[in-house]
Amino acid sequence: METLLSILIGFMIIGALYALHAKDLLSALIAQGIVGYGLVICFLNLRAPDLAIVQIVVETITLVVMVAVVLNSSRKEVKESWNRNKILNIVTSVIIVGFLVYIFAFMIQPLQPFGDHSMRMAQYYTQMGAESTGAANLVTGVLFDFRGYDTLGEATILFTAALGVVTILRSKPKKESAS
């Protein structure tokens, strides 16, 4: 399982690098699709069918919206010719990446090896979850019963994001009440 996942993530990294370096924005979006749909296969292998269903639909909608945006404006990549403060930029990036790698190496120590998760909290969820919520799908039980606050916060964030998009994209103030 670990080898298979490593190969899949390797493909995703290649797709991501191509997406960031493509000359044409449309091919960059298609290459981002490699990353998204590769993630779906990873979720299926990780025994998470709920996540796979959500991710495959969301990735498709994202691609549709992004392709619409790109086709409606320019699809040319801007020229990457920047010389000012080049050394400063490189030094800053190296410092940030080094700091992140240090934190990652530090934080990965207490993790269990892959596939050997110690279930402290989830022990209760998997054993008692069905009796106490009555839902056969444990993810839904956790989502709407044990962790209801998270779901409520998520719905609020989604509402706020939709409101933000509508507000940003309104070109002229609505004077006529014809909504």
């Binding site: 998470a48 709920d50 998997t126 993810v139 962790r147 998270d150 998520e154």
Partner: peptide
């Protein structure tokens, strides 16, 4: 069973 808690978090 696989741990359902991270899956629920990632779903949102």
């Amino acid at each position: 069973y696989v741990d359902p808690l991270p899956q629920a978090m990632v779903l949102t």
